[in-house]
């Protein structure tokens, strides 16, 4: 049996199961027919809908964990709940998506049981000698082939590494609800407050990202990029140079230590394309580079390039779109 810890989303398009969780379920069923999903019942999510969605991606059961302390996220409380269900279900493998919460919860489970955890796996197969895994290092700039021996295999799945595929003849997963027991101490790491920080399009999910780097030259220089992003329903991103110079807040940074983006098109303006930046941008389906240097790494990686000064090209593009 494989247990997959799944996360839910308040997506506007009716999606209940988060994309990376669907990817994790897809990887799970390539390893074992007996795939069981575990979700935390935070009181807001409709577990019947989650069961239906999990079934579409191959889960035969959905186990929902309920407790007063689970209504808000907390790494210790959610991990304790998952840990309890894992002990009960006794699977050989436990997967989670390599997201902030998925990775954090599974690392806590691993730590509680002193089990190994292999993070950000892109490929897994078992043989007589144990598990052969491929995972990412350097934010995806390097693959690692690794062997794992463990009485219980704990893995997180690198987001976007596996395509989520629905089963041919889907049936809703059977919903099994559990009242779990938790030690009160886990309450110390629960979320106490959630603050809305931005009402705009989220960088991580934006269909278009307009990114700016050293070539933008100043905080004011981003105004044209903002306008372009606004016209395309997208978000503005930037490279580390722009945040280090104080031109943009760090939450706009795309890269290994910033946000990973996956837009339909990434319009990279004045960005040279260092490996750490590309680690966060490579899931973009298409790249358009605007750069004075035709030899820049970003130009070489782009589907399309405009060789020229972004300070002329971007305003001209904005004007042309507005004039339509």
């Amino acid at each position: 049996m494989i247990v997959v810890f799944v996360e839910t989303t308040a997506g506007d398009d009716g999606d209940v199961l988060a994309g990376p969780s669907r990817q994790a379920l897809t990887l799970a069923r390539s390893l074992d027919d007996d795939v069981v999903a575990v979700a935390v019942d935070d009181g807001e999510v409709d577990l019947d809908e989650v069961a239906e969605d999990a079934g579409r991606y191959g889960a035969v059961q959905l186990h929902g964990a309920w407790h007063d302390l689970l209504d808000r996220y907390g790494p210790e409380s959610w991990a304790a709940a998952l840990d309890g269900l894992v002990e009960e279900l006794a699977p050989g493998v436990v997967l989670a998506a390599g997201t902030e919460r998925g990775g954090e919860v599974l690392a806590h489970v691993a730590a509680r049981r002193d089990l190994p955890l292999v993070a950000n796996v892109t490929h897994a197969e078992a043989d007589d000698a144990g598990w052969r895994l491929q995972r990412v290092r350097w934010g995806g700039s390097l693959f690692e082939h690794t062997r794992l021996e463990a009485e219980r295999v704990l893995l997180t799945v690198q987001p976007h590494a596996v395509d989520a595929v629905e089963v041919v003849d889907p049936a809703a997963a059977e919903l099994v609800e559990h009242d779990v027991e938790l030690d009160d101490v886990v309450a110390r790491t629960r979320v106490v407050e959630e603050v809305v920080t931005s009402t705009g399009v989220s960088l991580a999910t934006a269909p278009v990202v307009v990114g700016g780097g050293r070539g933008v030259g100043s905080a004011e220089g981003f105004a044209d990029l903002e306008r372009l992003a606004g016209l395309l329903g997208g978000a503005v991103g930037c490279s580390r140079v722009a945040t280090n110079n104080g031109w943009r807040p760090h939450r706009d940074q795309v890269g290994q230590t910033g946000t990973a983006i996956a837009p339909t098109i990434y319009i990279a303006c004045g960005i040279s394309g260092a490996i750490q930046h590309w680690a966060g941008a490579k899931s973009a389906k298409h790249v358009l580079a605007i750069n004075t240097d035709a030899e820049a790494n970003m130009v070489a990686r782009a589907d399309w390039a405009v060789v020229g000064d972004l300070h002329q090209v971007v305003p001209a593009l904005v004007a042309a779109i507005e004039a339509r």
Partner: peptide, 11 residues
């Protein structure tokens, strides 16, 4: 990489 042009002429 397809170069769409140089400067604003590529718009």
């Amino acid at each position: 990489t397809e170069v769409l042009g140089s400067g604003p002429e590529a718009i």
